[in-house]
Simulated assay, not measured.
Amino acid sequence: MNPAKFLLLFPFLVFIPFLTIGQEISYYDLNTSSQDLKNFFLSSNEYFSGGTDDLPYFQGKIDNKYIKFYNSTGVIAIIDFKDKNQYLELVRQIQENAFFQYKVCTDPNSNITYNYRTALGNAFRFNFNEMRISLEFPSEINNLLDKHSYLQKGFVCISEDAYAFHTNIQCEGLGNCTSDIAKTNLREAKNYGYKYCEICTDDSYSKQLLKESLGYYDNSNHSNYQISDIDLTFVKKYESEYMFQEICETEPLKSDLKRQFGAELYDKFINYIAVQGPLEINNNKALLSSCMAHACGIYMSSLFINFGNNTYYAGLLNDEEVYVISNNINFNSQDWSTFPDEFAEWTRDALKDANSNK
């Protein structure tokens, strides 16, 4: 899963406040379980409700925004907006806080879908041709599909110089292909040396277009620190000490970990820091790992830091689930080549433990 990219700062842009009146939904409202989201709408007096307990629907009393729950491979909530500003503002929040995965399009005449995922496993999907956002919640079937992500469909250019596996048939890179284009899956593509297309897994252009559409740079205090603001060199002063928790509770690293994990998982990440070794720095890199007392292999936390490029990678084993995040803009949780070797080894061991815990 890709982390959010740098936010671009335009010093001469003027802040233009929204004039929308209505019930605005935030990213933080949606980054929760399906049941908690249903309860959120049911407890609000700003929405009409109907449907069944399992599959309700809601409509805003003021802005007519429509939210309906469906069952597929898991629970899905579809949000249809009537107000463009509300829709774009939520898209902006998703882009800043969730991990971008890839653009998907299998038909040259269809819309390009942007796919994001949160640390909780919630999946956001939208395109810029309709004011609709799809939110898919984790389920056993979806988890199984994720484990078989190597069957993901895509396209490759049959050429000696081609190297990219494209999830978007409208990708500019694929447009440069002068040979045949073949439809395949990720496993077959990797067997022939292809790897994820950098354009298909990059949302920086859509972010720029969105900021231009909104007409302002959001400089409010959301504790969304940029990579340049997270100076990780402070960690070095703890060399040879047992200070894993103190490091992760130091700002601005604390806020960035909490932003990416979400408050609930961040608390678990901190709580699982108990049995640990001293901080060791080798080749300007450090790997911290820990587990809850008497629960190693069940509840564990890990933090890998590369001081050379000021990036970190954090991992959490929570019984049967493994979560990984990073502030590295090139990180993709579905592509092992974007993992530092040390963190990849920890993650693979955590995945083995998670399977053993089932």
Rank of each mutant, 00 (worst) to 15 (best):
Y217H: 11
D161L: 08
N219L: 14
K147W: 12
A182N: 09
N168I: 00
K183D: 01
K153C: 05
S179F: 14
C177K: 01
C177A: 13
N168Q: 01
Y194W: 07
H166Q: 04
E172H: 01
Y217L: 13
K236D: 00
T167D: 03
Y192P: 08
A162R: 06
K237S: 06
V156Q: 02
D231V: 06
A162D: 10
F155K: 00
Q152I: 05
C157M: 08
D180L: 11
Y194M: 04
Y238R: 04
T178Q: 13
D146N: 12
A164Q: 13
Y192L: 13
T201N: 14
C200R: 00
Q170R: 10
K153I: 14
I199F: 02
K147P: 03
S204K: 09
L186Y: 08
N224W: 04
E239G: 06
D203G: 01
Q208V: 15
C197H: 01
Q208T: 15
Y225G: 07
T178A: 14
E172A: 06
K183N: 05
D180M: 14
D229G: 08
S240Y: 15
L210G: 09
L209C: 10
Y205N: 15
F234M: 00
L186D: 05
L232F: 07
Y194A: 05
Q152F: 10
K236A: 00
T201Q: 12
Q152K: 09
S240E: 14
K236N: 00
Y150Q: 08
D161A: 06
C200I: 03
I230S: 11
K153P: 06
D229W: 04
E239C: 09
Q152H: 12
N224D: 06
Q208L: 15
E212S: 11
Y150T: 07
L186Q: 03
I169E: 01
Q170D: 07
S213R: 13
K236R: 10
D218F: 05
K183G: 02
S204Q: 08
Q170L: 15
Q152E: 15
Y150L: 09
I181M: 07
K153T: 15
V235A: 09
D231M: 08
